[in-house]
Structures are given as structure tokens and as C-alpha cells.
């Protein structure tokens, strides 16, 4: 009886461990492939998604939406995303390696025809550190507390006639990395 009780309890414990592992670590299995797709261009390097790329990014995309993105690695220095915003729906969403949404902005909230977003690492030691997104000199500064993230932009093509224009506009989006210079060692 004691022996049977042991196996039942052990099975339940194993089930709990597997359950929690699936919930917590699924993103560690599912997200790296997406980072690899954009990572080939390094930090920065905006790419408009081809149908094949999109298929690997999202199996349920909107048919009339066009997508693009870049790898953002604020751990290596700030990244500037410059995007022209055509009339109609447009958004940028930042995803962490764990599959969490870190930041989202759409055209309605941007309210401008072109947007520059600067993604930078939160630097708590700096007197100039910002803790929340804010506008400075016409640029939106977004502090992040992750080393790497994916910036995915979307633009809706309401009618086939505007597809070409929207694609051209999306392809003019740039993602530029500004690596942090290495600190020179202090001489005593």
C-alpha cells in the first residue's frame, strides 16, 4: 500500500514539474528561430518579411497586412528605428526572447507621419537614465531591461491598389544599431 502511494505521489509530482516546464520554457523553444531569422542581419538591419519569413514568424498573419522587423540588441548599444507612417493602421511591437510583449505603439498613438524610436538599455546608474518611454528631441526613447528583442512592424493594406505604396513605405523603415564604445581600462 505504501509502495503504491509512493508511485502515485511521484507521478503527480512529475506531472506538475512537466506542466510548469512546458508553461515556462515553451518560449525558449519557440522564440529562438524567430530571432535567428532576423539575427542574420545583426542588431539593426530592417527586413520586410517575405511570405516564407512570415510563415516562420506567425502562422496566422492577417492576409492584408504587410510585416517587417529587425533584431534589437540594446545590450550592445542603442538601436534607432526610423519609420515612415502612411495613413492607415501601422504598428510596431517589441517581443522579448521569452515571448513577452515589451512595447507597442500604433499610428493612432504616434500621431505623426514619421517616427524615430530609440531602444536603449535601462541604465539605473546613469543620472540621465529614463525609466519609462518619453519623447526627447523628436525621438521616442524606450528603455528596455532585456539584452535582445524583436521589433515587428505591421501596416494594413486596405485595398490592393495601395499595396505597392505601403510596401515601399515599409521598406524605407530603417533599424540602425549604434554599438556602445568599449570603455578604456582605467590606468592607476
Amino acid at each position: 500500500m505504501t509502495n503504491r502511494f509512493f508511485w502515485i505521489v511521484a507521478s503527480i509530482l512529475l506531472a506538475i514539474i512537466v506542466h510548469v516546464s512546458v508553461v515556462l520554457f515553451a518560449a525558449r523553444v519557440k522564440m529562438p528561430a524567430r530571432f535567428d531569422i532576423l539575427g542574420k542581419a545583426g542588431s539593426g538591419g530592417f527586413q520586410v518579411f517575405t511570405p516564407d519569413m512570415l510563415q516562420r514568424f506567425d502562422r496566422r498573419p492577417l492576409k492584408h497586412m504587410i510585416y517587417g522587423g529587425c533584431l534589437v540588441a540594446p545590450g550592445k548599444g542603442r538601436v534607432e528605428l526610423k519609420a515612415p507612417i502612411e495613413p492607415g493602421y501601422w504598428s510596431v511591437t517589441l517581443y522579448s526572447a521569452g515571448g513577452d510583449v515589451l512595447y507597442t505603439l500604433n499610428d493612432l498613438h504616434a500621431g505623426v507621419k514619421a517616427m524615430t524610436i530609440v531602444f536603449q538599455l535601462k541604465d539605473d546608474d546613469s543620472a540621465d537614465a529614463i525609466q519609462a518611454p518619453r519623447l526627447r528631441n523628436g525621438k521616442l526613447l524606450v528603455p528596455l531591461d532585456v539584452e535582445r528583442a524583436l521589433a515587428v512592424t505591421q501596416a494594413y493594406v486596405a485595398h490592393p491598389g495601395e499595396r505597392r505604396r505601403k510596401l515601399e513605405s515599409l521598406s524605407r523603415t530603417t533599424c540602425t544599431a549604434y554599438p556602445t564604445p568599449l570603455m578604456a581600462p582605467k590606468l592607476n
Binding site: A26, A27, R60, Y95, G99, T104
Partner: peptide, 20 residues
Amino acid sequence: SPYSRLHYLLKEQLPPSHFD
């Protein structure tokens, strides 16, 4: 909920932003 993230990732989708 962590299950919400799991839901989308298992369907090979990027989770949508509630804000948007």
C-alpha cells in the same frame, strides 16, 4: 497569464498586444 503566451506560441503565433 503565462498560459496566454503559451497559447499563442503553441499555435506558432506571436502574442498580440492587449494595448493595440
